[in-house]
Design a binder for these strands. Structure first.
Lengths: 222, 222, 222, 222
DNA sequence: ATGTAAGCGAGACGGTACGTCTGGTCTTATA
DNA sequence: TATAAGACCAGACGTACCGTCTCGCTTACAT
């Protein structure tokens, strides 16, 4: 801060000097490079910081600066491995999703759908995965790459287990195979709409109704 | 996000006319105050600038600064009437929505749903309303007030005509009245999911299938 | 606030409505026009507000907006009579200066100067006049009209009683008439420098020394 | 404020050279960071821009925004190193003051004072230093930190060479040592008053008279 | 064994946008 | 015709992030 400044005179706010001196010992261990390859500790610290940040303040207040600060990482280190904020959100999302729900396999489509929806809402409530996905959707409304990622990768992944259930149901004769694709879209539309409007509490009645309508057909009114 | 048709331009009955007339002789008319009350010309110019900006660059690049610049307005004037970016987006959205689709009234639910969906997709493609709604959803992922507005005001408004169709269908005996609410939610989930992933092209097959499944029930596989 | 807005929808921050309704009765009497001539009540209220504001927060925080707010006056009313902030400051300054010090007339220049300086410092301390003059000097550093006003009107007025004392002293033979002008300038330089650096406490020793040096000459060191 | 001579331009040994060289091929070199430490080129460009701005439009029109624009710098870069406008003005002032007047050493106080005053007025006329100091004084009338800086740092520095002359004179027996402090204050009061009222033209008669009165005493009128 | 290549924390950099404040002008409605 | 009111454009304020850059360091790997 002092180099090359022959004329730098007393600043208006130079009274801070004293307290800066007490900072002699460094509380942060400064996680250095481990050679010409990615440092797993750095990666873990960054994703953990991002996860915690999302958990604490949600997508608002989620910034690369804040993640770097909290992780004790340099911003270029983040940008090296996650070229955009979206990528970092995806990393958090996928990491959380790893703790996955065992497939229900109740033997009937309606029960499978309901169980899956309830498990998903629960995971979105209790981990930052929900905030992460919401953030990705938000980014996708303004950035092309995020949009591609969302509907080329994330939403298909979200629909995959649903499609699997529907495939099973089709094999059991519960569902016309020609309808599985649209049914999967309707289910994920339901899930997404609830997530984005913050309505992911354990609303059993609604989940039950959705599952019944889509799984067993409605039949005409009596 | 792909439709580069520059959307329908200023309507014949638009309030912007006043401003555009003054533009004829002076490049920057410096639209002054008209007394201690809101200046409709300023309001029109701001909403028009916001609309055009959305149409040209989408939600990315939509900033209050840019709107003020383009409208020749002071930022405080914008903040006075639309306290947040979301409010301005809503203004654009509702303005565009005014040119509304006549209700289909085909006499059968399936046709009504399909016609409505196609009309809505068309409107989203051809006016900035789609971009506006996408922006509002994005904002709602990080800002509580926007979230409240979204699911307390905007989504209900979106679902209202659908609910009306379902009510009619229920009166005709096509649908169990107990299901109308969830059916409306499923339809709007479908619409919203398509909007947010940029899939609002005129996909007649998908719209047809969605309408059939939700309107007539699926019936089990043969 | 409602006119011409067919599309103005629910604002994000529209919860204020309720409390605005309680504002039915007006606490402020709304001092109206008294016809086609200047309303003394308005003038008094404005100058009083300016004076009080200066007294409470000093020149920082002194703005036309704040004065208008506090006086319950419209900004144009202020600008009509005081075309710039400087003019308003001058009004405050002159009004305060009205409660003026009786001329000392001790019969000797040194005592006159000291008495005058002490009286002036006291007035600057105890009324907003000091803040007003400081503000005028500040404005004069960036605005030509204020500068003209300052050294064409205010500083001469400040020097006038001093020049009078020096004239008397010259008549008494205490001072060379050719020196009175510069002596007056040196005295007012002393006063101004003290005011602008906030050193207008009752420093009798310094005032005494200044008076002695300028009034009786120094004489060489013993 | 009247001198429209464009003041001495960039010195041969100025640090700006580096930046000006890159300007040869690219109209906007986008002077990037040079690592986790202050970039001297950026500093030089900012101070130079501030200096030029002061020289061209004076303290009015001197804004951080304008400096940033002209320097091709980001506003945060300026605020990082000069937390307030005052700090930047001080930087300009001290930079200019570096081109210092050789101490006169005429052997007699009166000549020393006159030479010093004339040199100072000349520097204030021909460089932006005068505008910078005027700006600092203006700021000090509304901001406490600027006030502290002014009379704790800047005015003492201004008075230092004068005090030195007076000390020499006292050693030579020309002046009573007990008077040196007040004499220095009277001289700097004279200088400051002239600066703040824009009267820094080469008024030899006035400078002569001031020097004579303060240096040799006046003696009574004949 | 050593040179080189890459990762690392750090933080400065030019920008853009944020939301607020003030300046000075303008117009209306009221008296 | 003066007044209170308050909207209007303009633009500066100081702050937060963005994504890029360079530094000085550390370590592993290829020579």
């Amino acid at each position: 801060m002092e180099q090359n400044e022959p004329f730098r005179s007393a600043n208006v706010s130079d009274t801070v000097q004293i307290e800066e001196m007490t900072l002699s010992e460094d509380p942060r261990p400064r996680r250095a490079s481990i050679g010409a390859r990615r440092n797993p500790a750095a990666e873990a610290a960054i994703v953990a910081a991002a996860r915690d940040l999302l958990g604490e303040v949600g997508f608002a207040g989620f910034s690369i600066d804040a993640v770097a600060r909290r992780a004790g990482a340099g911003k270029p280190t983040i940008y090296r491995w996650w070229p955009s904020r979206t990528d970092l959100l995806v990393a958090v999302y996928e990491r959380e999703r790893a703790a996955r729900l065992a497939e229900p396999e109740t033997g009937a489509l309606k029960g499978d759908l309901a169980a899956h929806a309830r498990a998903l809402f629960s995971a979105w409530r209790e981990t930052p995965a929900g905030h992460a996905l919401r953030g990705i959707v938000a980014e996708a409304q303004g950035a092309e790459p995020a949009l591609v990622l969302l509907w080329g990768h994330l939403l298909p992944a979200l629909a995959r287990p649903i499609r699997a259930m529907l495939g099973d149901a089709a094999r059991r004769g519960e569902v016309d195979p020609a309808d599985t694709e649209m049914l999967a879209e309707l289910v994920s539309g339901f899930l997404l709409r609830r997530l984005l409007t913050g309505q992911i509490d354990d609303d059993r009645a609604a989940i039950e109704r959705m599952s019944r309508i889509l799984a067993t057909g409605r039949g005409r009114a009596k």
